[in-house]
Nucleic acid binder design. Structure first.
Lengths: 154, 154
DNA sequence: ATAATCCTTACCACCATTGTAAGGTCAAGG
DNA sequence: CCTTGACCTTACAATGGTGGTAAGGATTAT
């Protein structure tokens, strides 16, 4: 299986497959005479694993630990479990934060008339809410799906 | 107010303030004789607005639209509302996915012996789960709080 | 044989953010 | 008045993931 097929089979772009290899997240596969990477079903498996974990919000770095455990089957499954539990906690926490955001937003939206009067509390809420938060910003979040109408246009 | 004070007052780093200015998200402030940026309370307000929106997961691009609405109070609040609603939807969806993930992980963890036998189903579950998802990857998520033990070490 | 499609590497761009370096400015204290 | 330290200025690099592009070789299909 060459990289294109592996990509299709795993849902990971060829770009990212090579990238993951380059940072040592996956091991360098064998090559054909002519230098083509050759992947096994197992590799695809790993890629799908990665894709999955990525979707779950694991950073590439975090996946390193997970993958290490996966690869080295002799590692104690207790390790896996504890890592997983830690992730679960982080996951839940993130979901909670997300819902809090949603709730805040919804609350504001509920009090926004939705007509053409410019006194929508969403914006006031935004502007007024936060105490100067000197907390270090988390890695960005990007809940996409909003069409900005004039961003960067200045 | 110079940039440092504005930063402290708004919770936005001086770096980012300059960055936001450079991409036109905020307007270039007046300068002193010697070139120092001078900010007003209003500017701090806007910065806090940005900080807030950022925390809620709006991308800088998205904030462009929000900010435009904020600045131009005559714009229909319906615009704001629809943007917010769309964001809420995305937020909820993400939270849902996160919880599904957490649930899966927890389920797997529950069936992981936690001893030193290497047949922990977490990893198998991960690897097996996803159908090849050719969906374009969302901006990353960053469920932080896990210490990778050997990432990148290959 | 040739064309189309794939592969390879090597770059560059993006976003949001932080860091660093080299220099100018300001306020306080000696 | 001069030094010191904290601030400001710009400019440039790096980060993590990801996408794009280009130049050249390999494979496949016609």
């Amino acid at each position: 299986m060459n990289i294109g097929e592996a990509s299709k089979a795993s849902g990971v772009s060829t770009k990212m497959i090579r990238y993951y290899e380059s940072i040592g997240l996956i091991k360098a596969p064998l090559r054909t005479e002519s230098g083509y990477r050759v992947y096994s079903d197992n590799d695809v498996h790993a890629l799908r694993f990665i894709s999955q974990a990525r979707d779950l919000g694991f950073s590439v770095e975090q996946m390193g630990s997970l993958l290490a455990l996966w690869r080295d089957r002799s590692r104690a499954s207790a390790d896996v479990k504890s890592i997983a539990l830690e992730h679960i906690r982080a996951l839940d926490e993130k979901a909670r934060a997300l819902q809090a955001m949603s709730k805040t937003l919804r609350h504001l939206a509920d009090h926004c008339h939705g007509d053409d009067r410019p006194d929508c509390p969403i914006i006031e809420g935004f502007a007024a809410a936060a105490a100067p938060t000197p907390k270090k910003r988390q890695p960005r979040f990007g809940v996409t799906g909003i069409t900005p109408d004039r961003a960067h246009a200045n």
